Amino acid sequence: MTAAPELSPDQATRRTPEPELDPEGRGRVERYTVFAFVFVPLLALVAAVPFAWGWGLTLTDIVIGAVFYVVSGLGITVGFHRHFTHGSFKANRPLRIALAVAGSVAIQGSVIKWVADHRRHHKYADAEGDPHSPWRFGDDWRSVAKGLYYAHMAWLYLDEEKTSPKRFAPDLLKDDDIRRVDRLFGPIVLFSLLGPALIGGLATMSLWGAVTAFFWAGLVRVALLHHVTWSINSICHTIGEENFEVRDRSRNVWWLAIPSFGESWHNLHHADPTCARHGVLKGQIDISARVIWMFEKLGWASKVRWPNTQRLAAKRVGAES
């Protein structure tokens, strides 16, 4: 017998068997767990804003933080994810380098490491080998809570099986431009943290302006983007809607769509990983897809893999096979 060929990262998603539990009860527990895990800390941060406004937080800090959030966030979603990981479109050399730098500003790891980890996730999605599945410990509420924490952030320092770039990102290792950006990750991190402070200090011509910009547009902005991105790994594999047939537990979470620039339409993404648009149904806002569309119109991007109507119809939940 001949051995079956190894599947590509985008082809090899697998579904673990659904547990034999009451789905309504399980869903309620999962929602409560997610609420406690995500919203309680977020509410604490929101509550701190009125107390800091005017002396420890200014409009300048918000504007600087918003610009860095959008640039680095789109660097992750359009660059690291849809372009480098899945090849949803081709980018000319300046855009390709810019996307690699912008994604590095998010401080979520160097471009080659990020891509290797994500391709590994798709190959083993919610099965053994997935670096950050929230279901790795079981389906009861304690296991779900533990799994959410693990998938959200703990896997970054507890995952003993380090992803091999040679296996999962050999194409990037052969790219001189990307290897150069990868090596410059340290200086880019310093710019991401200290750049807002420099801009804030110059804009206000004060040391205090530099300090508040460093805190809000530097530290808080990085932390917020981290948690939004990590929520795709944890929340979007725990709760939400399944509009398309997948072999894992990826779901759509509408309330994360805007802060994640469309990444939380995660169910379609796992059903069709190379598709440049994740929010394909009516009302599903996908900012990243719109940015790719703009790049295409400007001539900076080509061979964009836009949704195919027939393929989407075949993958819809309840469609006849």
Rank of each mutant, 00 (worst) to 15 (best):
F261Y: 15
L99D: 02
I178E: 08
Q108L: 01
T85H: 04
K162A: 09
P187T: 03
T77L: 10
L95A: 11
G195D: 05
V111S: 07
S234C: 06
F39H: 01
I285T: 07
A313D: 15
N308D: 15
F191K: 09
A116C: 02
G129A: 08
A100I: 08
D176F: 04
T229R: 07
L7H: 04
S72C: 14
A47D: 00
F35N: 02
P259T: 05
R31T: 13
W265G: 00
A12V: 01
S88D: 04
E320M: 09
W135K: 09
L207Q: 05
H226C: 11
V63W: 13
L312G: 02
G103D: 06
F84Q: 06
P134L: 10
F295V: 09
G200D: 03
L43I: 08
R136W: 12
W306Q: 08
R179K: 08
V49E: 09
D175Q: 06
E320K: 09
L43M: 15
F39Q: 00
L21C: 03
K303T: 04
R14K: 15
Y32R: 13
E18S: 03
R120M: 13
G147N: 09
G87C: 10
L172Q: 05
G195I: 01
G73R: 07
T60Q: 15
I76Y: 11
N243C: 10
R221C: 02
S321A: 14
A106N: 06
Y150C: 07
L198Y: 10
L298C: 12
V222S: 05
R277M: 12
G65V: 00
P94W: 07
V38G: 00
W293N: 05
A12W: 11
L7W: 09
D139Y: 11
P273A: 00
F84W: 06
P170M: 13
W255L: 03
V220R: 00
V46M: 15
V78S: 09
A217F: 08
S143Y: 07
G79E: 10
A203I: 05
P134H: 12
A210W: 01
H227G: 07
H132W: 12
T77A: 02
L194Q: 05
S321V: 14
A91Y: 13
T60G: 15
H81S: 10
R31M: 15
G75T: 08
Y32I: 08
A52V: 01
R277K: 12
W208H: 14
T13N: 14
I232E: 01
P41S: 00
R311C: 03
A47Y: 10
G283N: 11
F168R: 02
T85S: 15
H226M: 14
P273Y: 00
R96P: 15
E30T: 01
H269Y: 06
R179A: 01
G218H: 07
H121T: 14
W55Q: 07
A213M: 11
R93N: 13
F244G: 00
V280M: 08
W135Y: 14
